[in-house]
Nucleic acid binder design. Structure first.
Lengths: 221, 221
DNA sequence: CACAAAACCTATTGCACGGTAGCTTTGTGA
DNA sequence: TCACAAAGCTACCGTGCAATAGGTTTTGTG
């Protein structure tokens, strides 16, 4: 039924310990494997039922250990959520080096269109962000701060790219980078939402690509 | 803290009974008042905590009756949610006659920009839709069908307007009404989300108006 | 005024939840 | 090989939840 974000790289080459209080470089191979396993299952469950709709017991069951055993690795439900979000953030910013190297505006927007196309193949992940971000609008939600920071980062990344493009003369001088940045992500998220609800009738990747092309036509020098 | 959608019109002129099994036109005035009271409180709670995060007990407490008393008016939590959504749908389609009278494309889009400006004053309601729609992406959510239908309706409304505008020669002949419709609501929702998370930095009304203006410049004949 | 229905209550059921305490097992480095 | 920490277990606690059962009070109408 759902897109299985299967086989996260277990990163067997890097013996980097999960940052713990313990300074020693000991480490259990099976422990790390379990942790990644749990994280992936938790991700799917959070995506499917939201934070509040997900139970630790169910995650534990699917990971083939007891709920108490799960809480040995993640001391609370909230800690587990944060771990999932961190994991995704790290993987995404790796995969999409957006923000790291400030591409020219046009290239950055094109990259986003590519991302939308890629996202067609991983509805489960798209749903994770859509569901959690919606929930996190609530001020007391454990992921509220995360959602705020995430959008701030995304916007500032594209804003920087647009400003670079403007400086290099690639883009018009009279554009408003922060405004465009907010609009671009708004379009992306909104289309994702409609796509998740009705994949047959809403082709988000194409619609987003279409938006970006018209946008570029407008802001290009 | 939150926008209070105060004093729904009790509709005292219309003696129309809430459709019940009972055909008799008896009715308790206090009963209807209670019901609207409950609906408004439930709306706020659902907006604040989502469906899964809201408890009947809390709603009941705020409405000054017991949880069992609440369930006398709405036989289940799900029934209460549906009632809230129905209420909002009715009120919105009244206030914004969008879809009823197919305005020319430009006028319809302008009306939407006005709606975005109006929404600035009712963050609580905006949050209701944002939170619930996010939750409802999940297939087994009680509001899943509602969300699907809602977007289908919204899109088809604007699509019709755009087609009318195209037919009358107001808009270009080569536009793609369903695509534009999806994009317009995507932009609106996406901006609402960012605005709810960070009202200081994202001015959704202005950003949406800006989008609509550029869009019109592009699709106008 | 009687009576029937609506409004509302108390009490309770049964379940699911997150989290803690404290034990046993397992793997590994010295 | 042995000590020790990680891994994982059973058992349990307290709470909160939606919903039901069955009663009492309120209210409008004939």
């Amino acid at each position: 039924m759902d897109a299985q974000p299967k086989d996260l790289p277990t990163n067997p080459s890097t013996p980097t310990r999960t940052a713990r209080a313990r300074p020693r470089g000991r480490g259990y191979a099976s422990g790390d494997a379990r942790r990644t396993r749990i994280l992936n299952i938790a991700l799917q469950e959070f995506a499917e039922n939201g934070y509040r709709g997900t139970s630790l017991a169910r995650i534990a069951e699917r990971a083939e250990l007891t709920q108490a055993g799960l809480l040995h690795h993640f001391r609370s439900k909230q800690e587990l959520l944060v771990a999932v979000l961190d994991l995704r953030d790290r993987m995404d910013t790796e995969h999409l080096d957006l923000g790291v190297l400030p591409l020219g505006g046009a290239a950055a927007l094109d990259k986003l269109a590519e991302l939308a196309e890629h996202n067609r193949n991983i509805p489960g992940l798209v749903q994770l962000f859509t569901v959690l971000t919606g929930e996190a609008v609530t001020t007391d939600h454990p992921a509220h701060g995360w959602a705020q920071d995430r959008y701030a980062m995304l916007r500032s990344g594209i804003t920087a790219s647009l400003e670079a493009g403007r400086a290099s003369g690639e883009l018009r001088a009279d554009i408003d980078p922060p405004a465009v940045a907010a609009q671009v992500f708004a379009m992306m998220d909104g289309l994702q939402l409609q796509w998740l609800l009705d994949p047959e009738h809403v082709d988000m990747a194409t619609l987003f690509r279409d938006y970006v092309e018209h946008l570029l036509r407008r802001i290009r020098a």
